[in-house]
Design a protein around this nucleic acid. Structure first.
Length: 513
RNA sequence: GCGGGUGUAGCUCAGUUGGUAGAGCGUCAGCUUCCCAAGCUGAAUGUCGGGAGUUCGAGCCUCCUCACCCGCUCCA
């Protein structure tokens, strides 16, 4: 891909900073790893992305695989929820894995997956040989090393296997790691809490411990019955939410691609279990087409079906999981996930029904089918920041022939600024006409008025932040009541009547063209 | 968390053996300018990533630390 190889991530990051798209969080204090702020243009871009999603999903007018209009309602839930939520969802268990590093081999292991081989004979105690649970070769190797250490062949009965987690600190220092020869290279087990913890209320104790949500989905699941009871929705229907989520990632990396605080755009679409296949396929294709529609139309966007062995715990038995992936400069020639579409079965609703104590009574009653069941869920879960980053990467277009050397080829719908309004020169009544036009349009579209410096500089600045149109008032405007509109990509101009400028922008931004 | 690299103005970079921090571009102001970073004049802008140490004196040497990039690892 010559197109992607000419895009260097550091240039994109530089432009984002220079033109006020994205800054490092709390930069004046040296920044903080994994947190990023959106500046004036970046916040417009991200807002446009989220608004496009909300408008198309919640206010959308589409027909589903059944032939009926698709019904989706929105919610806006809190970041901090009752901590039992995360026990039910499996995050308290799954997000708290003790890890062990080997200083010698540089490997990292799940501490609860390490077993240690020693002898039953206390006289031989003093050295243990670690191997990974279920690793037959590792076990054989450990036994060989143990026999070499005690200088004799051992019978099966003489062997003792103990969990690494149960060893004393002293015993751990005499344990030989799975991939090394000498003891003492394994670190103490360390908890990697991927959920951020906090405390609710003034007293900091275990009872007041709470979590910052690691996904917005659980707010939807816990409100399922509230929405059903209050909104006259019937399965199949969806609940959508846009909101912040937090994960204490081990390694935040790649600009805003993996950060510790990020924003999700999630839909939980509730269906009868028998319709999982068709809804799953429909949503997968629908979401793929949507990303294309907002400007990721090239072959940098792919749809990838997961293999069975990479499915999440809640999706094992389902109709499948797909990723919509984008070829970012830092993943090329590979791809990075923008959105996952997963069949989560009825896992979450069942978990919550069980944990909240209401059990089978929580089942949904389907009037049409005269049947009680836990609806299955198709979950299209997108990253808003990853989406914004993909839009930035896709838009970034080096062009040595123009003054700015680069322009941002945003779709008009997501462009932070829709048009620049320029008096060609700052005299002869042109600024006054420009100011009048600016006031007329600014309530409908984000436009920038600029009368300073040469027209070339003003065009160049707009190219660099991806403004699709520049409207220029020239010496003829006062007599013919028309302006030139310059199109960003082609740099071509057309003359448009002053009173048709607003309609021109309406059409370009909201129209099909 | 490990290994490697980087860090001087908004950006790109210079900065001598350790001796008063610079340039270009951009930004801003004024003039000029009738269509693509033009020209002229002027101005603002530095915790030299941060802290400690060595030294009469540190952007430069030493140690610690932070952030970013690359490679591992991780990514329910």
């Amino acid at each position: 891909m010559t197109e992607t190889t000419t895009k260097r991530m550091e240039d994109i990051v530089g432009l984002c900073r220079r033109r006020g798209f994205i800054f490092q969080s709390s930069e004046i204090y040296g920044g903080i790893n994994g947190f990023w702020d959106y500046g004036p243009y970046g916040s417009e871009l991200k807002r446009n992305l989220k608004n496009a999603w909300w408008e198309d999903i919640v206010h959308g007018d589409v027909v589903g695989p059944t032939g009926d209009p698709v019904r989706i309602v929105g919610v806006d839930c809190t970041i901090i929820m009752n901590p039992k939520t995360w026990v039910a969802s499996g995050h308290v268990g799954g997000f708290n894995d003790p890890m062990v590093d080997c200083r010698e081999s540089k490997s990292r292991y799940r501490a609860d997956h390490i077993l240690c081989l020693g002898t039953t004979d206390q006289a031989d105690a003093g050295r243990l040989f670690a191997f990974l649970e279920g690793d037959e070769d590792g076990l054989a190797r450990a036994r060989k090393m143990l026999e070499k250490y005690v200088k004799r062949t051992l019978e099966d009965e003489e062997l003792a296997t103990r969990a690494f987690m149960e060893l004393s600190a002293e015993e751990r220092t005499t344990t030989v790691g799975p991939d090394v020869k000498d003891p003492g290279t394994l670190t103490e087990p360390r908890m990697f809490n991927l959920m951020f913890e906090t405390y609710c209320g003034a007293i900091r104790d275990e009872d007041s411990k709470a979590y910052l949500r690691p996904e917005t989905a659980q707010g939807i699941f816990t409100n399922f019955h509230n929405v059903v009871d209050s909104s006259r929705v019937k399965v199949p229907f969806g609940i959508a939410q846009i909101g912040k989520a937090f994960r204490n990632e081990v390694t935040p990396r790649n600009f805003i691609f993996r950060s510790r605080e990020f924003e999700q755009m999630e839909i939980e679409f509730f269906i009868h279990p028998s319709e999982a296949e068709s809804w799953y396929a429909w949503w997968r294709d629908q979401r793929y087409a949507w990303w294309k529609s907002i400007g990721l139309a090239g072959d940098n966007l792919i749809l990838r079906e997961h293999d069975q062995d990479e499915l999440a715990h809640y999706a094992k038995e389902g109709a499948g999981t797909s990723d919509i992936e984008y070829r970012f400069p830092f993943t090329a020639p590979g791809f990075g996930e923008l959105e996952g579409v997963a069949h989560r079965s009825d896992y979450d609703l069942r978990q919550h029904a069980e944990h909240c104590g209401k059990g089978e009574k929580m089942r949904y009653f389907d009037q049409a089918r005269n049947e009680r069941y836990f609806p299955h869920v198709i979950e299209p879960s997108a990253g808003a920041d990853r989406g914004a980053l993909a839009l930035l990467c896709e838009a970034y277009t080096p062009d040595e022939s123009r003054a700015s050397k680069v322009y941002m080829n945003f779709d008009p719908r997501v462009a932070p600024v829709k048009a620049g309004i320029f008096p060609l020169v700052a005299k002869d009544g042109m600024p006054e006409i420009a100011e009048k036009l600016h006031r007329e349009i600014r309530r409908r579209h984000v436009v920038e008025m600029d009368a300073k410096q040469s027209i070339g500089k003003r065009y160049a600045r707009m190219d660099e932040c991806g403004t699709p149109y520049c409207i220029t008032i020239d010496g003829d405007t006062s007599s013919d009541q028309a302006v030139t509109i310059r199109e960003r990509n082609t740099q071509s101009q057309e003359r448009v009547s002053l009173n048709k400028v607003a309609a021109f922008l309406d059409d370009k931004i909201h129209g099909d063209g």
